[in-house]
Nucleic acid binder design. Structure first.
Lengths: 214, 214, 214, 214
DNA sequence: GATGAATGAGTCTTCATTCAT
DNA sequence: TATGAATGAAGACTCATTCAT
């Protein structure tokens, strides 16, 4: 996503060999994220990652032992970032559970459905079976924490008498399903049938909240 | 999955060979389906398809000009089959719309979520961007007809006063979202956290029907 | 060592794609032998092997899964050939043990010291530690049988009273040591100090037979 | 083998640094020797040499222009050391030529066969053809002086009537052949068939001395 | 001098596709 | 039609060497 550092016209000569040990991993991960998003894992070329990061191919291998490790770093960085955002929001919320749920789902849209993050999810879905460890990583840092948060909201809603003790109690992820589907749809069929995501979001919430209502 | 039909030396079996000639495309498609399901598109090898079909690699190219065309044939065959099943069921149903919806969702579970068909969907999701035409095909033969059917059921339910004129009216696919998610979960995270699919199915329906209730 | 099959001038068009499933392995092994001899294992390029065999790089991998397997095939072919030669000669020999020994040593010179076979030995010595299995193979098919043959000759000589029951009884390989050294010298220092191999051979035998004399 | 001398923060240790500066080449050579012994020339990585010497990779290139020069330095240092040892011993020896020969061969075992020095020899044999200059160096500093010494001993023995004027007169290196072979065997086939080196040494001497006997 | 980040040429290996038989 | 041997472009990874700091 970041463009290769284009030389500042104020500075005469852009050093071809820059030494940026601290910044490099993040830069590479960012470039890798972009390339993986565009081509998926299998079709992404390490060479492209390097080029996008403005470095030589070999340099990538200075920081990550192989393509898979690079991908793992991307997953780790991106998912962790997205999830921690959500956690902050949920913490210490006061108000109706319905409102909390709305915020939570909104958050998922803002950080996953409407973001390139969904493209990472696509890789996990589509090619994750090739490296179960990364799949598990994604589950542990992304899915499980997310599910746990949902769990708590449902619990809260039920104990406050707002939600019924029904299906979402056993499978809180049901609540998020339409969002996941929207993300997939967006990546897959939006050319055939685009979604008005804002209306979809409202409909999503409407259906789910009505389904949960005590 | 089928072993290559090794000709019995005692039986000249000419009818078999003739029958085979016509059956070839279907056999190849079947083998390809299995291989694509196992490895995804990119990692599937044409050689494996041939071996699985009990023929030589070159023979595959006699029927399909390239790997992509083969994949397209698989999508066409499999999706068409699955969808027509559903259509039959829905046609001329008499009973409550809730019951019709249940059957429909059940059908989706039986033909997609609990079947290898979901593995095809995985490829469309994960690698479909590499060949938009096939993605569109999948949409046209699979998704759109499915959505249309859902549409009708919702329409029916609303006009009969069973369902409210709410979110599912605008986005009928919301109804199916939990099923799609289940399919993906099954392929991706079942090792980390398995789903009791029958209970999930009931919860899915429960949530949705309550969300739809007039 | 074999030149890439140069098209017979009598035949009009040398087919670029030849089908020679039977001949290929041997051709490739021969080409590989030449290339390995010239560059050693590590510096030998599979591409060169292919070129020398008059085929494309990929074709090599049709017959041997990787470079190491190819090398193993070379070792197997070459060593087996050389050793079986020796065995034939030794079998059923009648005459003095000294004469038998001379023939044996002569054979070693003819098949190892004065041949490219010593270049294979060089690889086993110099790079064999990278693949102990092939080292062991060389030992099993080449060294051990050779040692066994020597063993028998010494045994024969001792029991016939020709040789004394001395050092060569315990270490028959002592007999061959000067030959091995000659092979190495030839490959390593002949530019600095060439050996007159025929005189060396005679001296070798002279020293050893005198050392063995009862 | 040696850990990089980590400077004690309490002691400024300037003498150590100064001493180090002069010691650097030797330290690097020592580290290089170890690494070359372990991996051979081609598979040895300059990086490993540096790490082992406790310095940075670039520093190696401050003292040696490239990997080959470094190897040459190793050869020079190690071979010179080994050979000068032998020369001292031989000089001004009084006693039988047989005894002198025994000492000489013993010396070869102690300094070559039973030492890592043989690993250097292995590289010269196995990969020396890649850099003939180093091969020649090895010959000039190691082989030739050694041969000359042998030469003198044989000469002495013959003129004193101890040895016959036979094969070892023309090819004194015949005397050492079993030792060379032992070194190679040790590096190559000891896993398959170990040698009791002390008994081998005695057998070696026995055979050779008997072969020489006037 | 010393460092170690950066470079990029060099190789093995894979596999969709072709085509002589 | 059917075969399967042959092709060769593509891509991951290594490591000697350079050079800015």
């Amino acid at each position: 996503m970041t463009q290769p550092p284009r030389p500042d016209p104020d500075h005469p000569a852009p050093p071809r060999r820059k030494r940026r040990k601290e910044a490099r991993p993040a830069e590479i991960v960012e470039a890798a994220f972009a390339v993986f998003c565009e081509h998926g894992y299998g079709k992404a070329r390490v060479d492209d990652v390097a080029r996008r990061a403005g470095i030589a191919k070999g340099t990538v291998y200075l920081y990550y032992p192989n393509k898979q490790a690079l991908f793992q770093a991307v997953v780790e960085a991106k998912v962790t970032a997205a999830i921690s955002q959500a956690a902050i929001m949920a913490d210490g919320f006061e108000g109706s559970s319905a409102e909390l749920l709305r915020r939570m789902v909104r958050n998922a849209y803002d950080n996953l459905v409407l973001t390139d993050a969904k493209l990472l999810m696509r890789i996990i879905i589509g090619e994750g079976h090739l490296f179960p460890e990364i799949q598990s990583l994604y589950y542990e840092v992304g899915i499980k924490p997310g599910m746990t948060m949902l769990d708590k909201v449902v619990e809260r809603g039920v104990s406050m008498g707002e939600f019924r003790d029904g299906p979402a109690r056993e499978f809180p992820r049901l609540i998020m399903a339409p969002g996941i589907m929207a993300a997939i749809w967006q990546m897959t069929f939006s050319a055939n049938e685009p979604i008005d995501m804002e209306r979809y979001f409202e409909s999503h919430l409407d259906l789910v909240l009505n389904g949960l209502k005590a």
